[in-house]
Simulated assay, not measured.
Amino acid sequence: MSDMISGSPQPDREMKRAVWRGWRRRCPNCGEGALMDGYLKVRRECPHCGEALHHHRADDGPPYLTLLIVGHIIGPAMLWVFVAYEPGPWTFMAIFGVAAVVLSLWFLPRLKGLIVGVQWAARMHGFGRDAAPQDEAA
């Protein structure tokens, strides 16, 4: 089913492919260009295909999903390790403190890319529309 924007039909965008490309931190359109300029900053446009990426609104979603996922990994792991090995409190805090930080740092940019991919595929927030680029200062 094609989307009607500005009176002209536009082809559907495959959600699964866009999400996978976003997870890999690649352009949701071509899958070749880097999505991020640094650790978390999304590029204004794809360096490979020129697709505008500045429309994204991946604000609070990636941190929320990161906390949700990491909490569901760390929580049961903490319970299992405590019951099975009964480590000392400092050892316990050191292991799981580092694990939580490492997992969070690994998941955050991937989940941001995933959300940008979803927004691109669903044509949300100006993706796929003939919109003027946002002002750099805004």
Rank of each mutant, 00 (worst) to 15 (best):
W106I: 11
H125D: 10
A100V: 00
P109K: 12
W80C: 04
S2N: 11
Q119L: 13
R25F: 00
A100L: 02
F96W: 06
P28T: 07
A52P: 15
D130H: 14
E14V: 01
T91E: 15
P87E: 08
L111R: 01
P133E: 15
L103V: 01
V116A: 07
Y85G: 02
W20C: 00
V118W: 04
V70H: 11
P109N: 04
V102H: 03
A121P: 03
M1K: 11
H72A: 04
A18L: 04
D12Y: 09
E51R: 03
G71Y: 07
E136H: 06
G75L: 10
G22E: 03
A77D: 03
G38E: 03
D37I: 08
W106L: 10
I5K: 14
R25I: 00
Y85C: 08
P87L: 10
R17F: 01
G71K: 08
W20M: 09
W106T: 07
P133M: 06
W80T: 08
A94V: 13
L53H: 04
R26V: 02
H72V: 07
F82E: 14
W23V: 09
D12Q: 14
D59R: 10
E136W: 08
A52C: 09
I5G: 05
R44L: 06
L40I: 10
L65I: 05
P47G: 12
F92K: 01
Q10D: 02
D135W: 04
A131G: 08
H125Y: 13
R123P: 09
G75K: 05
L53Q: 09
R129K: 12
V101I: 14
G126V: 12
I115A: 05
K41S: 10
M124W: 15
L79C: 00
L53F: 07
C49K: 04
L40E: 04
I95W: 02
A34F: 01
Y39S: 03
L108M: 08
F96N: 07
V42S: 06
R43A: 13
G33L: 05
F127G: 00
C27R: 05
H72R: 11
I73Q: 11
C46R: 04
P47Y: 09
W106S: 03
E14S: 13
L108F: 02
P89D: 09
